[in-house]
Design a protein around this nucleic acid. Structure first.
Lengths: 225, 225
DNA sequence: GTCTATAACGCGATAGAC
DNA sequence: GTCTATCGCGTTATAGAC
């Protein structure tokens, strides 16, 4: 069964993966399931998500998801790590691109910052990535997820401090903008874009340069419960 | 049974309310339960929280919580509204205080901003307030909670724009700092404060002026699952 | 590598007494 | 205003076949 078979209401829609019917390697399946997990955890949160919905979105059976990852908790940890690694990889690529192709109009730091901000927004193409990260950050009280999320958050902080070379204040500002972007995506403010002038203004203020792209990629009114 | 009876591990600790044994007015009970709900929803999230734990934290029976609020969903909406109203009330008080008692060292806008930021941090005394708000903001896909959270977010935005008089860029920066503060509280970064120099630095950078107060109020290692 | 069947449990909500 | 008892469903995880 492909994920398209449940594209109707109530389900988190995930990019269709061609269902060739053939058995995949354990590794291919893991990637497929991780993608589905990001979408489902992102839309419903850790507790709200079910392994069954992840399984259906990935086109496998529920027990098989548990089998491959051991437990729902482990699946979330894997999804979190995946999201974080993708994010930092994108940041590093943006930083390298800024160094390789400097903008004569901007200072080095400004140019890198702009590219990194764009890279973060562009990650909306990975469905549920921002929201899963944000959900993890909110579970600091969880005995297993809490420490893992703190370590992940620290990885991002170190990127800004050590790799990008910002001071504490600059790094904090980047983190803050990132949290706001994640919040706006999780809130699905895009659903109200255009209907309320205040909200429209807020949205434009958050995504100044990438607005057309964001409006195009962020699906409105889907991912509903 | 007072909430102290379950102060042990696994439970969200809530300030003890004197258990006089007498029956309270429906209104008093509602307030008591709302306080418990903020703590539990904040620590566990909407789905992770149980009406039973809210009930135990408030010292009443589980069915009674459902009875008073109709449903868990309604309870969350009430808690969200309570959190938002408290927040905006605190912001308005801070703004008024800044106008009544101007700081000769700072511009009017700077002084008000500083006070409002402090007021937001000071709300950590209301256990779970920041986290419940943040959880609400992440549930944009929920058919009922999503729209309510968007309206709430817009209320805060309008405060900065209309009441405080900021431009879109300034308002966005305040919102961003607020999201970062909420995230740090939800992450319970305070748990690692002092153990990791990078984390300590990050934490100090977020709570520059109120650090002693924050460290004092934010309980470490409690609210565990 | 993947499924079906199912066990075991936790949760929200209702009924009804006091 | 508040409780106890309980129903019924949804969920994770396990067993075991193919």
């Amino acid at each position: 069964m492909t994920s398209a078979a449940l594209g109707g209401d109530g389900a988190v829609a995930v990019d269709e993966t061609p269902d060739t019917g053939r058995r995949l390697s354990s590794d291919e399946r893991r990637r497929q399931i991780l993608q589905a997990a990001l979408a489902v955890f992102g839309a419903r949160g850790y507790e709200g998500a079910t392994t069954d919905e992840v399984a259906r979105a990935a086109g496998v059976s529920q027990p098989y998801v548990v089998r491959l990852f051991g437990s729902k908790e482990n699946l979330f940890l894997a999804a979190l790590d995946d999201a974080l690694t993708r994010t930092l990889t994108a940041f590093r690529a943006a930083l390298a691109a800024a160094a390789a192709d400097p903008d004569p109009e901007l200072s080095e730091a400004k140019a890198a910052g702009k590219r990194i901000g764009q890279a973060f927004v562009d990650l909306i193409e990975v469905r549920g990535l921002h929201q899963t990260l944000a959900h993890g950050y909110l579970l600091g009280s969880h005995p297993v997820i809490g420490p893992a999320s703190r370590r992940g958050f620290a990885r991002v902080w170190r990127f800004f401090r050590d790799e990008m070379g910002l001071d504490a204040d600059g790094a904090r500002m980047f983190m803050a903008e990132g949290m706001l972007i994640s919040t706006m995506i999780g809130l699905r403010i895009v659903d109200d874009y255009g209907s309320d002038p205040q909200i429209t203004e807020l949205f434009r203020s958050c995504f100044p340069t990438e607005l057309p792209h964001v409006l195009d990629v962020l699906p409105r009114g889907t991912d509903r419960w």
